[in-house]
Design a protein around this nucleic acid. Structure first.
Lengths: 148, 148
DNA sequence: CAAAAGCTTGCATGCACATGTATCTTGTTG
DNA sequence: CAACAAGATACATGTGCATGCAAGCTTTTG
């Protein structure tokens, strides 16, 4: 049990996570700035739109959306509020459960997502590449991209 | 140039990043809650202490600390302020450059870090394991842990 | 060469904002 | 009716951006 490379509570998990944090901070910062500058949209808003566009009927329960974007329930309430104020989504009552609320993307929301999608993918790949140039992160990026 | 597997602007970068975000959100949330509950310390504070403890002379320039913890410069000003209020660190003027400020960890800071370190590593490994149990993330976790 | 002007750097502060926790309201279910 | 579930809201907090301020550096000028 001791030398099996299962790496269950391996101390190198810390090293892995440290590199991952650096990578995450770097990439997320770039994405945030690029989307805000070029598309006038926040990163959370973009991801929410993405989830909605890809969802069946372009709608999701608030709760499901929360899990998909990795935010808390209350944050999503306000996130959808922002999308509504921007005309990118609206709320719709769930017919069979009046407590439930659907967030639904609008046509304009779809357009904004389509417009931002290019920027997102370009900046993402570019950020991963520059991170991969850093010797400390090169291995991590390679691992992720190679899939093993 | 077209079929070379350099994966420069490969569209699968998006898939990679989506999994990474889910993993990141999951693990960071667990770490935040565990450290706050069991150790009464924030995640940023813990990471700053870690950087300081491991640094030469237990001190770092604000700027260097900012880069290490992946925060903006102004955020680190307040982060060190919090550490000071908690008695875990203090500021020291740089003798050769009076603009510069060193953040220096105190003995109590070292103790708090030592006390929290166990919780951190345990929760981290546990969170990675539970994430690895999710089929969607298993591959990512394995990739990171195997190093390739 | 010395002093002053102008630019740059390092950190602190004001402000806006997104997020989390706890709580409340409303609707559902036993 | 009691217990529970889904969202919305109140409040506190951490973060980033823009800005301010003081210290260093560079260039100009006498």
């Amino acid at each position: 049990m001791t030398t099996i490379p299962h790496a269950s509570d391996d101390s190198s998990d810390q090293a892995i996570w440290r590199r991952l944090l650096t990578l995450h901070a770097h990439v997320e910062r770039r994405l945030t700035q690029a989307l805000q500058r070029k598309c006038g949209i926040g990163l959370s808003e973009f991801r929410a739109l993405e989830c909605l566009v890809q969802a069946k009927d372009s709608e999701l329960r608030m709760q499901d959306l929360a899990e998909k974007v990795g935010l808390g329930q209350s944050s999503v309430t306000r996130l959808v509020g922002r999308l509504f104020s921007a005309g990118l989504a609206f709320r719709d009552l769930c017919p069979d459960d009046k407590r439930g609320v659907y967030a639904v993307v609008t046509d304009e929301g779809r357009q904004r997502y389509a417009a931002a999608r290019g920027t997102y993918s370009e900046v993402l790949s570019a950020a991963l590449n520059t991170a991969g140039a850093d010797p400390a992160l090169a291995g991590t990026v390679r691992s992720l991209r190679s899939g093993f």
